[in-house]
């Protein structure tokens, strides 16, 4: 499937999450709908299908090697953790995946399509959503507007229709509002719907940011330290949301997190980076016992 076709298929999906959740194919009317059905059944297909593969990625800034020869893959439907000590290149890796950085060497294959250079909004179009280490919300806008912005790619009405805001433009707005309200319910943030996010406490801001990413109905969700700076209770909530998003919306998740307990509990597979190189890759249990990982985190006695 070419990129354009994939985009078509995405836009043809009905913008309600229940369909997504059920993962059932509707009666196909026309080739676009058929493609869309194919995409959806692929999303529920065999778990070992590779969604994204990173092949021998290197990233250099001048003399600094942020990443060196890193390869790993992310399978459809899994929660994949990326861990490592500070400065290991985890965030740089995410930045490469979603188009902020262009790797100096290596290729990224997403949905079977190899790519070299890509702008972030093209990645978004392909179905990659992301949250940031330091919350990156639109501070002047309300929670509702922030999450509605996540629907930007799926709203089709042009400037002229929005200008009069009757008929199609209003219908579209209401349709997407319904989806957004479901996400608001899902994240239990109904009470702060109309509050400008700049006024919210940090934990809730993180949650709103997750909501905005989920509103894109992404195929791949990149979470950069979603639990950083949270207390235990907030962490538990956030873990629950990540797991539920993975199960219910069938979103593939790539997660950077420093809390090893969280990583071991949540993730299906873990990749460990240190100084820009991959030092281990496997299930949480395998990684935990790996001498190289223990050395990276704790050091060894000399």
């Amino acid at each position: 499937m070419t990129g354009m076709q994939a985009m078509d298929a995405m836009t043809q999906q009905t913008p309600t999450i229940q369909h997504h959740r059920a993962g059932t194919a509707e009666p196909a009317a026309g080739s676009a709908a058929a493609r869309s059905a194919a995409t959806r059944s692929a999303a529920t297909g065999p778990a070992d299908q590779v969604l994204l593969a990173v092949d021998r990625i290197s990233l250099r800034f001048g003399g600094v090697n942020a990443l060196t020869d890193v390869s790993f893959d992310i399978r459809r439907g899994e929660i994949r953790a990326i861990i490592g000590p500070n400065g290991a290149g985890k965030t740089s890796m995410l930045n490469c995946i979603n188009g902020f950085y262009h790797p100096t060497d290596g290729t990224i294959t997403f949905k079977g399509e190899r790519r070299a250079h890509m702008r972030p909004y093209v990645a978004a179009r392909g179905g990659i959503a992301r949250t940031f280490q330091n919350v990156a919300l639109f501070r002047g806008m309300t929670t509702l507007d922030n999450i509605m912005t996540g629907r930007a790619l799926r709203m089709r009405c042009g400037l002229w229709r929005q200008l009069v805001r009757v008929g199609p433009a209003l219908r579209e707005e209401i349709e997407h509002r319904q989806v957004v309200e479901e996400i608001i319910d899902f994240l239990q943030i109904q009470h702060i719907r109309k509050v400008p996010v700049g006024r919210l406490p940090y934990g809730l801001q993180k949650r709103v940011e997750l909501g905005r990413a989920l509103a894109m109905e992404p195929d791949l969700l990149l979470l950069d330290e979603p639990m950083a700076g949270m207390n235990v209770e907030e962490k538990e909530d956030m873990c629950r949301f990540v797991v539920e998003a993975n199960r219910h919306f069938r979103t593939t998740v790539a997660l950077i997190e420093h809390d090893i307990g969280v990583v071991m509990d949540l993730s299906d597979r873990v990749v460990v980076l240190e100084y820009g190189r991959k030092i281990a890759d496997g299930t949480p249990a395998e990684v935990k016992g790996d001498p190289a990982v223990i050395k990276a985190y704790l050091g060894v006695a000399h």
């Binding site: 902020f100 702008r119 909004y121 990156a136 919300l137």
Partner: peptide, 9 residues
């Protein structure tokens, strides 16, 4: 936040 705007498409 223009960067965040770009990543949501």
């Amino acid at each position: 936040m223009d960067l965040a705007a770009e990543i949501i498409g």
